[in-house]
Design a protein around this nucleic acid. Structure first.
Lengths: 204, 204, 204, 204
DNA sequence: TTCTAAACGAGACGGTACGTCACGTCTTTCC
DNA sequence: GGAAAGACGTGACGTACCGTCTCGTTTAGAA
């Protein structure tokens, strides 16, 4: 839209005020991160974020209209380089490595709590549900999708199986996140084998 | 005190007041059911349940100290006979049939919304988390466990795989519940095959 | 007085059928006394009295349909002999002595708190107001009335002044009770002189 | 990450929130006035005030942390010009006139009920007691104090008697307020004479 | 440089829900 | 058959957050 130039009489002054303050944004995100990891979903309130960030509630609502947006922002700014995508040439090895990294990341950083919050929020709010399903999930499963697609290209599985395996992998990881069993890493390896399709065959 | 011969000190007044009113209990559960399915997790409040049930909040808190208890009660009283456990002698067939029944049950009855609420609640409240993980999950996965154990007895899989397959199955079903994709039943069959370990082998 | 007030563990009341149980009555009054003097008007509840007395609420309501009745009962059973009516033959001396005794009694015994509660209760409940004005006040001012009437008979004041002097005396004592200044006994003597009508005359 | 989040010393943003809304304040006081005079102390609840005022409970508690504060506010905003302070040059006349005005004011306006509520509240709450004794009483007896001091200056009484006479006057007026006998104005005149010290002397 | 619209911290506002407490009545069970 | 224990509906308590709305105060691009 920008200028508006010729609207005759009105003569709008097109320049418009101050710009989004990076300080405020950083302070809000930092406070939100601290809060979700300190007190969890139940203790997370916009009021308290504002209080800790020394920010006005209006400022927060301006940039993050819902809690879901805030949770996604926390998750996104954290994730950057913490979870590398392995490429060993072997599907099971890749999956085990990647899943282990991710679980540790969830357990160690506020992002884990943020994702739990996002999922909880999605159970009550349609907008949050759609943000989770249509925006967050596709983006955040791109890495596993690549791992699986690469394996399919190598012939380790068939292309039409990829989506279902992603669902199995997401479901399994979410389950462990949601019931607080991220520390039980010993289950990762056998389950990844089952997802990869290498479970031992029944004795003949 | 008078009589009672020699158990002098015991002296308990054993009579204990009024008993739990079945009317109130039924009204509360019915109201809770209606509310969770009408307005979802976000619109679910103890106040409103009390209002609809014509019950006092105290009465609700007496029997269901937390929302998690209420959700579990809703789920439990609903489930009774709605989800039959098949026994076709074939693992994949059993899983497909059972999962389909369950998803339809979740979609059609308040229990689905109640489970979503229970999971959401568990993200913020330690008690709810423990109720979900330690009480609800073991009980509610007994059926799949039986399906899998029977299959193991028939030699369709190995016994040590049962727990992991349960996790995969629960994770997958929860995922679809949580992101509102219970209606996409077409994924059930291929995924159950993968869980059963019958995924097509890579092309030689 | 003093009563037993719940001697710890032993001593279970054995209530038996038909007639009003003196044990129960005593336990209720003792509990009520303790409670009003421990926690004051705001902390006084029938529930708590029942709890402490080991009595059913129904039992309490049967004998004391309102809190006012309970307060009056506390006051009445306490007062018995604690406030002697002096008869020195001198009005001011009688008043000073009697008022001092009464203030000390109010300060030292639950009855003081009970009267405060009764007056408070009367501000919200018509029945309590009537009990206070029409039952409690006449009975409880009989002593001062006698002191004043005797003085009138001795010629120290005129008979028609008695009622007004009673009002002045009650108002003054209540005021000190209600604002918690019973300990300021030094005002008693000059004020009783004013009530008696012996205030120093203006300098000529 | 780190960010700076508010470098302490420099950089103060000096603005300070929204200001108290006069509309809300007026609505709350009006509702409180109506309620106390309609339903008395027992029927007075912050919930109901909020309901009638169309205000949030928080708003009420923000400005009036306790019921006592609310009662004092009702009393204070009402009193303004309703009770003129007479100055006839004669103590008894002044007292009679002033007391009559005050009793009529108490009987006719919500302030009377508010004072009854304040006194009742003070019997259970230490803060209310202190507000009543240390804040309300001194302010609200300033007028009688002036009447008495003026009289002392004219020689109608001695200065050291003023405080005691105030107590007598307050006690007497409160008594009549508390037992609901404000309409019996005929007692005012003789009692004010006694307070002034003009009671008939005993026959010699 | 001046003007002006937007962003900002602060916080008041009308609401809803929380979980607890007390009320006075009713019900169940024991003595 | 009276009394304990206590469940019940009602409704107030005081608190926490919600999301919206002023307030003045920066702040920075346009004129």
């Amino acid at each position: 839209m920008t200028t508006k130039t010729k609207t005759s009489t009105a003569k709008k002054r097109t320049s418009i005020g101050s710009r989004r303050s990076p300080d405020a944004e950083a302070a809000v995100l930092a406070a939100a991160r601290d809060l979700i990891s300190e007190r969890g979903y139940a203790g997370f309130s916009v009021d308290e974020v504002a209080r800790r960030a020394g920010a006005g509630k209006t400022t927060i609502y301006r940039w993050y209209p819902t809690k879901a947006d805030l949770f996604i922002a926390i998750y996104t700014t954290e994730r950057s380089a913490s979870v590398p995508v392995p490429d060993t040439g072997n599907l099971v090895a890749d999956l085990v490595q990647y899943t282990t990294s991710l679980w540790r990341f969830w357990a160690a950083h506020p992002a884990g709590a943020a994702l739990r919050g996002l999922i909880a929020e999605a159970q009550g709010t349609p907008e949050a549900l759609s943000a989770l399903r249509d925006r967050f999930l596709p983006e955040r499963t791109a890495d596993v999708r690549r791992i699986l697609t690469d394996a399919a290209n190598r012939g380790e599985l068939q292309a039409h199986e990829v989506d279902d395996k992603i669902s199995l992998w997401v479901g399994f990881s979410w389950l462990k996140l949601l019931i607080g069993e991220l520390h039980k890493e010993e289950v990762i390896s056998p389950v990844m084998m089952q997802i990869a399709g290498l479970s031992s065959r029944p004795k003949q």
